[in-house]
Simulated scan of single mutants.
Amino acid sequence: MRKISEQEINQLFVFTQKHYVEFYDVQVELVDHLANAIEDQWKENPTISFEDALQTEFKKFGVFGFTGLVEQKQGELQKYYNRMLWNEVLKFISIPKVILTVGLYLGIVFFLQKTKSLGEMIILTILLSSFIYFMVDGFRYILKIRTEQKKQGKSWLLQSVAQATFSIPSIGLGGAYYSIINRLFQENLGISNAGIHFLAVFTVLHLLFLFVFYKVIKPNLNKSIKETEERFQIV
């Protein structure tokens, strides 16, 4: 039975690149799938050409070709890390971590009630400063990824997910911060008792989010990217 040659393997890589698959790990997976599928066709029909066998297999991916597969994989990975983030945050409202969470919340409420406008300004400064740090750190992280991609001449699907993981929360949190700060300034930094509790809850969630992100999500992403690089280094 005829086997895929090295030259044909290279043609498959070029084929995936021409059809908008930019991530090397996905290219390898697709090339392996296409090569096996073409060899299976040769078992049934040894006379079929490589190009015809390739086009037959490619048609099975539908009108969107490989694009749909790439988007599906990106979506699955993003959902995976989103679930990881929220699962870790939710651990802080279960015993025994809930004691720490409640203590932090009560401490912020007590601080705001005692310090009034000054305390509100301090909390808002902390929120805004940490958000700016998150954005700057995210920009540096994305720039680092793109520099590595340029240096290696390859990019990984996980790297795109890592960039989205930094970018998407920045947009969402930015909107939340704007709404809160705008509301407080409209009220001349004299928020009601209910507002104090709301600001305390938001601050606690904000701190938990940052803690989980930098202690769990970012290290996990870095580890997975490194493992992917090592895995495909010899391919």
Results as ranks from 00 to 15, higher is better:
T125Q: 05
Y214C: 03
L221A: 02
T203V: 07
V109M: 01
Y105W: 11
I126S: 03
Q159N: 13
E71S: 12
V31C: 06
V21Y: 02
R2D: 13
Q78S: 12
E39L: 06
G153V: 09
K116G: 04
G103M: 00
F110H: 14
K97T: 05
M1S: 14
Y105K: 02
E187F: 05
L85Q: 01
F92C: 01
K226R: 12
L173V: 01
L30F: 13
V212N: 05
Y24T: 01
I99E: 08
V98I: 08
L205R: 02
V136F: 15
T165H: 02
L100S: 09
G190R: 10
N87R: 05
K73H: 13
F15H: 11
V14Y: 06
F15M: 09
V109T: 07
S94Q: 13
E8D: 10
N45V: 04
G172T: 11
K144N: 15
V235E: 12
F211Y: 11
M135F: 14
L85V: 04
G107K: 14
M121H: 15
I196W: 06
E39K: 10
Q72L: 12
K223R: 10
S160N: 08
F92G: 09
F232Y: 09
I4C: 10
F15R: 01
N10T: 12
L106D: 06
Y214S: 05
K73W: 11
L127A: 00
N188Q: 14
Q113V: 13
F50A: 02
R140E: 12
K18W: 06
G172N: 12
E88N: 09
F139H: 15
G103A: 03
F211L: 11
H197S: 10
Y80E: 03
S167I: 13
S155E: 09
Q149M: 15
L184F: 14
I234H: 09
L210C: 05
F66L: 01
V235P: 03
L12S: 08
H197C: 08
L118F: 11
I126F: 07
I196H: 05
Q186R: 11
R83P: 03
L112Q: 08
E39A: 13
S160W: 01
S130M: 08
N193K: 08
E6I: 15
V14K: 02
E8I: 09
V63L: 11
S94T: 15
R140V: 11
K150Y: 05
G195A: 09
M1N: 14
Q17A: 13
L210W: 09
S94F: 13
V98G: 10
A164D: 13
M1G: 14
E39Q: 11
I217G: 09
F134P: 04
V14A: 15
G68P: 04
